[in-house]
C-alpha cells in the first residue's frame, strides 16, 4: 500500500490544467489555411485521396480531409496546416475552409437546441457506437477520459448502456452490418438526445465513401448535433467541441 502511494505521489500532475488553451506538441495538422496563390487547381484536386479539395476558389472540406498533408507538401505556398485543433462544428457547411480564410471554426448557436445546454451542460453521458470504425477514433475517445485529458472533470462520460445516455457518438463509416444495431441503440436512448459524429469516416465515409459494404441511411434521418473532424479525432478537438455545444447560453 505504502509503495502504491509512493508511486502515485511521484507521478506528479499529469492532467492538462486548461483544456481550452492546451498546446499540441509537434507538427499537428489542424485547421488549414489556403492562400490565394495561383496554382494548377486540377493537380491539387487530383492528388487528394478522399476528394476533400474543391476548386474556384479552392476549398478543403474537413469532413472529408484525412489530414494526410500531401496537398501541403505538393503546394507548400498554397496550403498550410495550423495547429488549431478546435475544428468541430454543428453545421456541416462550417467544416469547409475557403481560400483566403483564416478564422476559427465555430458552432452555429442558432442550430443548438435549447435542451442541449439546459439539460446537459453540467453532465453529459454518452454511448459510443463504432459502426465500421477502425479503432483509431475509438482509442482517442478512450484517451479523452484518461488522466491527461480527463474529460470526466466536465461531467462528460461514456456509459455502458444507451438507456443511461444523453446521446450517441458514432465512429466509422457505418457498415451495412452495423446499420441495424446502430438504429436499435439510438432508439433505446431516451429523449432528449444528441448525435455526435467523430472522425471523417463517420462524417463523410472517408476513404470508404461509396463502398457497397456501407449503409449510411441512418445519418440522413436525424439532425447531427456535432461534427468532429480528424482521422482519428484529436481528444482536444472532441472535448472542446462538446464543451462549446453544451456551454450555458441564454
Amino acid at each position: 500500500m505504502i509503495k502504491n502511494i509512493k508511486i502515485l505521489f511521484h507521478q506528479g500532475k499529469q492532467y492538462i490544467p486548461d483544456i481550452t488553451k492546451a498546446e499540441v506538441p509537434g507538427i499537428f495538422r489542424g485547421r488549414p489555411i489556403i492562400s490565394s496563390e495561383k496554382v494548377n487547381e486540377q493537380e491539387l484536386v487530383d492528388l487528394c485521396p478522399t476528394g476533400a479539395i474543391n476548386t474556384s476558389p479552392v476549398k478543403i472540406d474537413l469532413g472529408k480531409c484525412t489530414f494526410c498533408g500531401e496537398c501541403a507538401f505538393a503546394f507548400p505556398n498554397k496550403i498550410k496546416f495550423t495547429t488549431d485543433y478546435k475544428i468541430s462544428s454543428n453545421e456541416r457547411e462550417r467544416l469547409i475552409i475557403r481560400e483566403g480564410e483564416d478564422k476559427p471554426i465555430e458552432l452555429n448557436p442558432d442550430l443548438i437546441r435549447k435542451e442541449t445546454f439546459e439539460y446537459f451542460s453540467g453532465s453529459l453521458k454518452l454511448r459510443q457506437v463504432s459502426a465500421g470504425g477502425d479503432n483509431s477514433c475509438e482509442l482517442e475517445l478512450n484517451a479523452c477520459g484518461n488522466v491527461n485529458f480527463d474529460m470526466g472533470r466536465f461531467g462528460i462520460e461514456f456509459v455502458a448502456s444507451p438507456r443511461h445516455a444523453d446521446g450517441i457518438v458514432i465512429t466509422g463509416s457505418v457498415s451495412e452490418n452495423m446499420a441495424e444495431p446502430l438504429q436499435i441503440c439510438y432508439d433505446a436512448t431516451p429523449e432528449p438526445k444528441i448525435i455526435i459524429l467523430a472522425g471523417i469516416d463517420a462524417i463523410s465515409g472517408g476513404i470508404f465513401e461509396g463502398s457497397p459494404a456501407l449503409n449510411r441511411r441512418f445519418l440522413s434521418k436525424y439532425k447531427i448535433d456535432l461534427y468532429v473532424p480528424g482521422n482519428p479525432i484529436h481528444p482536444l478537438t472532441f472535448i472542446n467541441g462538446i464543451l462549446e455545444l453544451i456551454k450555458k447560453r441564454k
Partner: peptide, 10 residues
C-alpha cells in the same frame, strides 16, 4: 463481420 467495409474491393 459487423465492421466489414469492403476494403479488399476498394
Amino acid at each position: 463481420g459487423f465492421q466489414h467495409r469492403g476494403i479488399e474491393n476498394l
